[in-house]
């Protein structure tokens, strides 16, 4: 099998990359695109640290073959902030002290963002459910749940376009 060119959009920017067969999306993002915010934790779908959005759906980029990203719209943590303004989730993670070592944080925020994108005013149970595939060793989860709920409240006060 030979390498092939794969085109996708990464955080709004067109990419065309030479991809070897079997290359994982997480490695392509980190090593070929320099998007180091996405973490490679377990590499087998167990920790959620590698969560990115593929066509607005949260996916574990360690389990996605990069070749399958052809024509897709990919969003990583680097694309969460806009015009040098943090996303409400990022603001809330800082305010609620929802990060310690930070290894899980990008995946947590991308998983939470997928939730808020489809359910802007979630109940606590929905937040717990949305984060249940993401492992954190440091925070005890409560500050993360609190941050997601705080971000939802923050977004509710903003004009719709800013979300």
């Amino acid at each position: 099998m030979r390498s092939s060119f794969v085109s996708f959009t990464l955080n709004g920017e067109e990419k065309e990359l030479l991809i070897a067969p079997g290359q994982r999306l997480v490695d392509v993002l980190r090593e070929q695109c320099g998007a180091m915010g996405t973490r490679n934790g377990c590499g087998q779908g167990g920790c959620g640290a590698c969560t990115v959005h593929v066509d607005a759906v949260p996916m574990l980029s360690c389990l996605v073959l990069a070749e399958l990203a052809e024509g897709c719209d990919i969003l990583t943590i680097e694309g969460a902030a806009r015009d040098r303004t943090l996303h409400a989730l990022q603001e809330a993670f800082v305010a609620e002290a929802a990060t310690q070592c930070g290894f899980c944080t990008a995946g947590m925020i991308m998983a939470a963002k997928a939730l808020l994108d489809r359910d802007p005013a979630p109940q606590r149970e929905a937040v717990v459910e949305a984060l249940s595939g993401n492992v954190c060793r440091c925070t005890g989860y409560e500050p993360i749940i609190a941050a997601v709920l705080a971000a939802a409240a923050m977004l509710a006060r903003l004009p719709a376009a800013a979300a």
């Binding site: 934790g41 377990c42 087998q44 717990v128 249940s132 492992v135 989860y141 409560e142 993360i144």
Partner: peptide, 17 residues
């Protein structure tokens, strides 16, 4: 041998702190 088998409480299992 991996995260699937190494048990830890998740966000649904936490107490009130």
């Amino acid at each position: 041998v991996d995260f699937a088998e190494y048990l830890m409480p998740g966000p649904a299992d936490i107490p009130q702190y």
